[in-house]
């Protein structure tokens, strides 16, 4: 009931407290500008921010998938005498 009892409970388990998690989540939001949103309300729920973060990571993984796919195709199709091949050589050797 009382807040002191709640905080004792939180510290007795090894888990972090509500305040700490809020603080950490706000830090996380600051470091990722892309998921910073709902500026008007400072109290975006913690679970919402975590969910957004998960989606953001999934999207990045998906992009890396697609780009790997395209890179494979490009490297396969490249003509060794083309300017693109020269670009790769200079990048790899340079």
């Amino acid at each position: 009931m009382s807040s002191s009892r709640r905080s004792r409970q939180a510290s007795s388990s090894s888990r972090i407290s509500d305040d700490q998690i809020t603080d950490l989540i706000s830090k996380l939001r600051q470091s990722i500008p892309e998921i910073r949103q709902n500026r008007r309300s400072n109290t975006v729920s913690a679970s919402k921010v975590l969910q957004e973060t998960c989606n953001y990571i999934r999207n990045l993984n998906k992009e890396a998938d697609d780009l790997s796919d395209r890179l494979t195709q490009l490297l396969e199709s490249i003509d060794p005498n083309s300017p693109q091949a020269a670009v790769i050589r200079s990048l790899i050797n340079g």
Binding site: T53, Y56, L60, A64, L74, V87, I88
Partner: peptide, 21 residues
Amino acid sequence: AHYIKCLSMQVKVMQCLVDGL
């Protein structure tokens, strides 16, 4: 937070490579 920064950087560089090639 750190992982996301790195992942974004990775995707950007891969995109540059794809564009360049």
